[in-house]
Each structure stands twice: as structure tokens, then as C-alpha cells.
């Protein structure tokens, strides 16, 4: 930079700023994507390639690792357990959470602040820790080592989100729409099913998927509460010590893929649901 260029400086500066900005965006995208790419390479390599050195930076499209994963004892049933538990969590958290979200958005009632505090408190609490005493309780009630038992704990984890997300979703539906339905011959229930439900359904789906992901990804409670019927995360955690590398990577890949799809499916709602929930 010499004195000659000072005339064009503002333009140059803007251009330079633009380049820095774009470079930063690309760099941050790479920061997210490159580690995922490495996992993909490992998953699509033969077990031998995964354990060899140095690594190729391109996938070999060898399904050896994935086949090994599928044939590894207990892995597929762990995958099945994960899906069952996550699906149960999804249904439970919406069925239980959505009515409360509706109540918070539509009514002023005594104890509302206390209730909100309870919800927020659960969010600020290391919830998986509760798996320890529940393990004892579940043994007494026969829920130990069952999908339902774990789903109940995961629901505790997902419920604060379900309540807050549905709260913001319901708050986005003007109450006048419901009132109009009442004046047009609806009861509270029919107004809900004819007007609110159709409008809210995509959002409810999104928050259900969110609950699914929470359960799908949970490690600690799953490891504590399941013994025979391990979920995928619990199974992988248990085998971390002795399992061969290619098994870990294939398992990690199987863990990541549904999450990627789900985040893509709910991306539109991610921001809306956090926006209002914070107020």
C-alpha cells in the first residue's frame, strides 16, 4: 500500500472486506464439513484401510466396514432399540408437552410463573444424572432394561424443549383465529381441531423430530439404564475400549446420518422455536 492508492481506498477496502467475509464463511463451513468428510472416508473404506497408515483423503467406496458393522453381534438390535426408544420419546414428549405449551400461550393462570420456572429448572439441570436413582426404581417396577423405561427418561430430557417449542408455536397462532371459530359455532375442542391443529402441524412435526434427535443422541442415561437391550449409543460407548476402529467409525456414521436428515427437515423451525421461547 503506497500513497498512490489512497484515492481508490474506500472501494478497495470494501472489496477486501467482502473477500475476508466470504473467506470466513467458506472457512467456517469447511470447519463443520471436513471432519464429517473424514468420517465418511473411514466409513466407506475397508477395515484394513481404516487401520492402515497413511490415510487416503478420498473414499474408496468399500462397504467392508459397514458390512462388518451390520454383522457385529448385537449391533443391529441396538440400532433397532435406538429407533424404538427415540420414537417413543417423540410421541410421549409431544403428547405430554404440547398441552402445557398451549396452556402457557393461551392462559394467564395462578402459578404460571412457578410452572415456567419448573420447566426452565429442568433445562438447567444435568438430567442424565437422574438415570441413577431411576435405575433402582425401574428394577422395582419391572421397567429396567426396557425401551419404555429409557424413553421415559429421554422424555424428561425432551419435555422442556417440547413445552417451550410448542409454547412459541401456539403463540404464533393469533388467538383471534380461535375466537372467530368460537363465534362461528365451534366449541373449544372443535376450534382446536379445525383451526389450530392444521396450522400447527408442521411445527409440531418439527418439535417431535427434535425430541427424536435428543433421544437418538443421548449416551449417559442409555448406558446406565440398558444392559441387554442396549441402544446404539450405549452399545458404542460400551465397546469403545475394545472395539476395532472400523467398527467405531461405521457406528459413528450410522449415528450421524439420521441426525443430518432430521436437522435438514426441521431447519426452518429451528430458529422460530428458539426466538419466542427466550422471551
Amino acid at each position: 500500500m503506497t500513497a498512490v492508492t489512497t484515492d481508490a481506498n474506500p472501494q478497495d477496502a470494501r472489496k477486501a472486506g467482502r473477500i475476508v467475509y466470504l473467506a470466513a464463511v467458506v472457512l467456517l463451513c469447511a470447519w463443520v464439513l471436513v471432519p464429517l468428510y473424514f468420517l465418511l472416508i473411514n466409513t466407506l473404506s475397508s477395515p484394513e484401510a481404516v487401520n492402515s497408515f497413511p490415510k487416503s483423503f478420498f473414499p474408496a467406496f468399500d462397504l467392508g466396514s459397514l458390512t462388518f458393522f451390520a454383522n457385529f453381534g448385537g449391533m443391529l438390535s441396538a440400532l433397532k432399540n435406538s429407533i424404538i426408544v427415540a420414537a417413543l420419546t417423540m410421541v410421549l414428549s409431544i403428547l405430554i408437552g404440547a398441552p402445557a405449551g398451549y396452556a402457557l400461550s393461551r392462559f394467564d393462570f395462578r402459578g404460571k410463573e412457578l410452572f415456567r420456572l419448573l420447566i426452565l429448572l429442568t433445562r438447567a439441570f444435568p438430567l442424565p444424572l437422574l438415570a441413577l436413582p431411576l435405575a433402582v426404581l425401574f428394577i422395582r417396577t419391572g421397567l429396567d432394561d426396557t425401551a419404555l423405561g429409557l424413553a421415559l427418561v429421554h422424555t424428561t430430557l425432551a419435555i422442556p424443549f417440547a413445552v417451550l417449542i410448542t409454547f412459541s408455536l401456539f403463540s404464533g397462532i393469533p388467538i383471534e383465529l380461535e375466537e372467530a371459530a368460537w363465534t362461528l359455532g365451534c366449541t373449544r375442542l372443535t376450534a382446536f381441531t379445525k383451526v389450530v391443529l392444521p396450522l400447527i402441524l408442521p411445527g409440531i412435526t418439527a418439535s417431535a423430530i427434535f425430541a427424536f434427535v435428543i433421544s437418538w443422541n443421548e449416551v449417559f442415561a442409555a448406558a446406565v439404564l440398558t444392559i441387554e437391550n442396549r441402544t446404539l449409543t450405549a452399545f458404542l460407548l460400551q465397546t469403545l475400549g475394545e472395539a476395532p476402529l472400523h467398527l467405531k467409525f461405521a457406528g459413528g456414521f450410522i449415528l450421524v446420518v439420521p441426525a443430518l436428515i432430521f436437522i435438514f427437515a426441521v431447519r426452518k423451525y429451528l430458529f422460530a422455536m428458539w426466538g419466542i421461547a427466550n422471551r
Binding site: 434427535v213 449409543t233 458404542l236 450421524v256 441426525a259
Partner: peptide, 17 residues
């Protein structure tokens, strides 16, 4: 979307990655 991808990734999977 790219930046929020890790949101869906469990800590275990992240460790493995």
C-alpha cells in the same frame, strides 16, 4: 444449514469423528 449440522450430532459421534 451447514453451520447447524452439528446440532444433530451426539457427543459420542462427535468424539468418534
Amino acid at each position: 444449514y451447514v453451520w447447524t449440522i452439528p446440532l444433530g450430532i451426539s457427543d459420542l459421534a462427535a468424539g468418534i469423528i
